[in-house]
Write a protein that binds this DNA or RNA. Structure first.
Lengths: 234, 234
DNA sequence: CGCGTTCTTGAGCATGTTCAAGGCCAGTGG
DNA sequence: CCACTGGCCTTGAACATGCTCAAGAACGCG
């Protein structure tokens, strides 16, 4: 990992720290920011580490997950450019989750104390954060519902829809994210073997196409029908 | 249902609207408040109803849940005196969840617009709400984890621990909440029959005692061991 | 006291997990 | 450039778990 310079003014990511008019504040933000560049499969933070900073993703994809005692993880979300990271540490001394990069990534860190003070001085941003938390809570409760009530086929379809919504596809409908079967299943709430079997099943029904480790979505509407039992993330 | 007078000054519930020093603001809060008194098993609001107010529970217990298309519900939380209700409607036009009383209850309602303005003028309370959301998100993510990874025995033990932590017991270790098997299973993430079987099992192991519809906790530590695989709500 | 609802329990069944074997692919070193 | 190796993916078979269904019991509300 290494740290380098990156100006908010040059950054395209739609992050919360954007859109401050106060020039003095912008300067302060630049001053307090540290940029962390890391390659694929690096651990960003781990459960029970003290929370010293709140971060925003500049580029790459980060998985946020909880570790079970048997080593089986549960992935809470995949975060991308513009997303806040470590926000769950706001009210706690130690991280309640872990985060690892699944692609080469760069992240902007702000000291937690600074961030909290900053929120106090910028009520509009604090309010946006509040709305974001409310939205996050909604998504988390939908996940609860889906994990509690869907069967495996529905869970796999729902995960495909989530990946499609969150990361999108290129012009050939190829998902802009590549996951191992293990990561896929840790998010979907099943095992890697089941994911493999159900994805093969979807392929034989021509709903998707498996090309190396990539997934091409052929029939989005059919997948929606399969997952239609559940509620959808947005 | 009927509406009646209830002054914040006389109220013991630890709600967010407490602890304002500004007398003018206190007067305004009283002015905008509506009290709703309802008996057991009343619907407070329903998915897809427009969100007109944000509420606080004065007394009673309310279940907050999502409805599946097959009629099987998933209970998100049981809320009690002092808890905020309908906060998930803050960022949405329509409620994403439903709420029903499972005991006779009374609830203080504030118009949503007023509440949002109030937050803007009381940044300390807005910050407390932000911390509350962060905490809620933590609990919801723990529930995700538990639903994804626990077996039924662990889920039932975990639910008992949750009820014990949230509602406590009287001096005889009798839980201060009485649930139907259906509500219990809708929270735990299994079926009513499984709950019945596992509770009987726990009784035969002397971990709990079933007395009518009440549950008496004998061996809290043993239950903790059973659920120890998972993470715990706080 | 009677009736409807909820709870309990067992049996059969469906679903999903685990385990294991084999194949594929990418990276490495000769 | 090719063979080797390790990791990941796929697939089937055996097994475990939990769900559904059904019948009887207990409870609680007129």
């Amino acid at each position: 990992m290494n740290r380098q310079r990156l100006l908010c003014a040059d950054c395209k990511a739609p992050c919360l720290m954007k859109g401050i008019n106060d020039l003095e504040a912008v300067k302060k933000v630049e001053e307090k920011k540290t940029v962390l560049v890391c390659s694929k499969n690096q651990k960003i933070f781990h459960e029970d580490m003290p929370v010293n900073s709140i971060s925003f993703i500049n580029s790459g994809i980060i998985k946020v997950y909880k570790t079970g005692i048997n080593g089986k993880n549960h992935i809470i979300r995949f975060s991308r450019a513009g997303d806040i990271l470590g926000h769950r540490g706001l009210n706690t001394e130690y991280y309640p989750v872990s985060a690892s990069s699944i692609e080469d990534s760069s992240i902007c860190l702000f000291p937690k104390d600074f961030f909290i003070t900053f929120l106090g001085n910028h009520s509009r941003i604090a309010f946006k954060l509040l709305m974001f938390f409310s939205k996050e809570l909604e998504n988390s409760e939908i996940m609860q519902f889906n994990l509690a009530q869907m069967n495996v086929r529905e869970k796999v379809a729902e995960t495909l829809l989530y990946l499609n919504t969150t990361f999108g596809t290129d012009k050939n409908n190829r998902l802009n994210i590549t996951l191992s079967r293990q990561d896929f299943s840790d998010y979907a709430g099943t095992t890697k073997e089941q994911v493999s079997k159900i994805l093969s099943e979807f392929q034989s029904e021509n709903l998707i196409l498996l090309d190396k480790k990539d997934i091409i979505i052929n029939e989005l509407n059919e997948l929606k029908k399969i997952a239609s039992f559940g509620v959808h993330l947005s």
